[in-house]
Design a protein around this nucleic acid. Structure first.
Ligand code: MN
Ligand code: MN
Ligand code: ZN
Ligand code: ZN
Lengths: 170, 170
DNA sequence: AGGTAAATGAGAATCATTTTTATTTAGATT
DNA sequence: AATCTAAATAAAAATGATTCTCATTTACCT
């Protein structure tokens, strides 16, 4: 979660939460999905909306059981899947690691640059790359329906503290 | 596995097997890895080298037990991991699906364009994208160490036969 | 041929995710 | 407000890919 200057075509993504997630708003998100408004869904959604970006199902579950220890993790997975299917959250999968989720609504498409050392994630979008991808698909006669672009590297602070820290968060 | 015209900066990758994988060659690959030359490693490697690209561990295992039904799948996984660690094979992971492996030696870096419908895979490399990736990382102050770029779409033949065929191979 | 570290097979373990099932509940309908 | 029913839940088992453990076997250096 560190940002710096950018080329004209690469833009940073607003990671801010500039909408109010009050009770009625959260309720109507669930209702608009065509689902019943349950206490567990309210809790899960609130935790998702107010928690960190790129959260894992496990992390979300841990946040959720602080509010209701009886809530099951299958419910978290189930609801996350529904949110993903309805494109309200984006599922980010890197390698064999657990999937990470982020609220997609009101946040445009973007890709990720992740620090291998500490896990810090930068979000970006580069129009030139997006365009080149379309051209490549076209050259092969394909209709492009999606893509995954994940960059991996060493973040500035991990470059200094060369080598020996635990894999942490954001 | 379908190829068409390309822009100057996007090149197709040779998917041909233009080297001879005779007994002594296969043996020395294993020996050069600093490993003992066992019958199971010979079999696994031969199957890998002569089989399809982007093979899964399971598929490789199935090919392997045709030559030696007693060979265990842990041995396949183990050896694949060692090959991956020594950069002799590349591990391609997409989403939560099983990893796929391909012989990396004598084949330059490339990315993949996969048909969502039938699984057909095109390989490409685009120098412009590679360059842009480096710039993006640099703009964030990161040192780029790797990337995953996977494009998804509908291949030409699946565009015709709209919709209803089983998920096949390559 | 003998010694030993490395390799193997079989199966258990792990880890993320999904499915199953019996029970509860939201919300529509009296 | 009481009743109904499809949908939702918790808990636990199942799944599927991959890794690990460990007792046994084997490659290869003397
Ligand atoms: Mn993101
Ligand atoms: Mn490939
Ligand atoms: Zn870092
Ligand atoms: Zn296809």
């Amino acid at each position: 979660m560190r940002m710096q200057k950018q080329t004209e075509t690469t833009e940073l993504i607003n990671t801010k939460r500039n909408f109010k997630w009050d009770e009625p708003t959260v309720k109507s998100i669930i209702r608009d999905m065509g689902l019943k408004v349950t206490q567990q869904r309210m809790i899960i959604l609130k935790c998702l909306l107010s928690g960190r970006d790129h959260i894992t199902a496990q992390e979300l579950f841990e946040a959720v059981i602080k509010k209701d220890p009886s809530l099951g993790f299958a419910t978290v997975y189930r609801f996350l899947k529904q949110l993903t299917e309805q494109d309200l959250v984006t599922e980010v999968r890197m390698g064999g690691l657990p999937a990470r989720y982020e609220w997609a609504k009101k946040k445009k498409h973007h890709d990720h640059l992740t620090c291998k050392q500490c896990g810090a994630i930068c979000e970006f979008e580069n129009q030139q790359i997006e365009l080149l991808q379309k051209q490549i698909a076209k050259n092969f006669g394909y209709i492009l329906t999606g893509h995954i672009l994940e960059l991996y590297g060493l973040c500035p602070s991990c470059q200094k503290e060369e080598g020996l820290l635990p894999i942490g968060d954001t």
